[in-house]
Simulated scan of single mutants.
Amino acid sequence: MQSLIDHARTFHQKVSGGREQVIPPCDSASPQAMFITCSDAQVIPSLITGARPGELVELRTAGNVIPPYRLGRLTAEAATIEYAVNILGVQDVIVCGHTSCGAVQGRVRSWTLRSAPTTRWWLLQTHRWREAPATGDEEAGQAHLVAQLDKLRRYPRVARGLAAGRLRLHGWFYEVETGVVSNYRPETGTFTPL
């Protein structure tokens, strides 16, 4: 923790005194994309994409879970998605799952989250598997990612943006161990390297 504190204490000097030491913010006031991913500390959107400050709107939840849209039900996830699409005008939304995801493992093997009842309840309330996921870690994570994309398509503003051609959805799957990122291809139901 001390190294994090030390860095935060001197960060302002790096930003104000020597811009070459910090990635400069982008010139545009509009982010390029929204990146929805897991809160796992091993998944770092700006490192994966090379985005500079201001280029991504990030939404991080346990297991990159997107709750089902329900009129009148307020969630931070729905508010963040709506703001990114309606106000900031993002044209691309990336939902990124990953290998060795504790939330996915907790959903597949309920005993994994015995000591995290709130997380377990959250996963049970926000996600129903349409079919039993494959037994492997990667297959379960990919099935989970596809389910999140399906839920996101049901958000009214997302659906309108997709229908009008103003918005594109991307399903990425990040292999933590290797750094390889695959893209979901809905027309074939497969994942292929970016």
Score class of each variant (00 low, 15 high):
82 E>C: 01
11 F>T: 03
73 R>H: 15
106 G>V: 01
190 T>L: 10
154 R>D: 14
81 I>D: 05
45 P>I: 07
67 P>Q: 01
61 T>P: 07
79 A>N: 09
125 Q>C: 12
15 V>M: 05
168 R>Q: 11
47 L>Y: 13
134 A>G: 15
156 P>A: 06
74 L>N: 11
128 R>N: 15
113 L>D: 00
2 Q>D: 13
189 G>W: 07
48 I>D: 03
52 R>L: 10
2 Q>W: 14
134 A>D: 15
155 Y>C: 07
129 W>F: 13
188 T>G: 02
133 P>I: 02
28 S>C: 05
123 L>D: 03
28 S>F: 06
160 R>I: 10
95 V>D: 04
145 L>H: 08
97 G>I: 04
41 A>E: 07
150 D>Y: 12
138 E>Q: 13
74 L>A: 14
32 Q>N: 14
43 V>G: 01
11 F>G: 02
111 W>E: 14
5 I>L: 11
155 Y>E: 02
121 W>G: 00
82 E>P: 06
186 P>D: 01
145 L>C: 02
21 Q>M: 11
160 R>Q: 15
181 V>A: 01
165 G>H: 07
83 Y>R: 07
121 W>P: 10
131 E>T: 12
109 R>C: 10
73 R>F: 15
166 R>W: 12
67 P>C: 00
139 E>L: 09
132 A>R: 12
60 R>D: 04
84 A>H: 07
1 M>A: 03
179 G>Y: 02
143 A>G: 10
108 V>K: 05
150 D>N: 12
145 L>W: 00
91 Q>L: 05
165 G>M: 08
123 L>S: 02
154 R>P: 09
167 L>E: 05
156 P>Y: 07
69 Y>H: 05
192 T>Q: 11
47 L>E: 15
142 Q>R: 11
110 S>R: 14
116 A>Q: 13
48 I>G: 08
138 E>V: 01
78 A>W: 11
149 L>M: 09
87 I>N: 06
99 T>P: 01
153 R>F: 07
11 F>S: 03
71 L>P: 12
30 S>V: 07
45 P>W: 03
26 C>G: 11
51 A>L: 06
147 A>N: 08
87 I>P: 09
4 L>N: 11
140 A>G: 04
25 P>M: 11
40 D>F: 06
26 C>W: 10
105 Q>Y: 04
8 A>K: 00
85 V>I: 09
111 W>M: 12
181 V>K: 04
119 T>D: 00
78 A>M: 13
27 D>W: 11
184 Y>Q: 00
12 H>K: 14
59 L>V: 08
134 A>Q: 15
50 G>T: 05
112 T>V: 14
20 E>G: 14
180 V>S: 00
140 A>Y: 05
8 A>N: 11
53 P>A: 08
36 I>G: 03
95 V>L: 08
76 A>C: 00
95 V>F: 02
171 G>K: 02
77 E>T: 04
163 A>T: 15
119 T>E: 03
79 A>L: 10
164 A>N: 13
83 Y>A: 08
135 T>F: 10
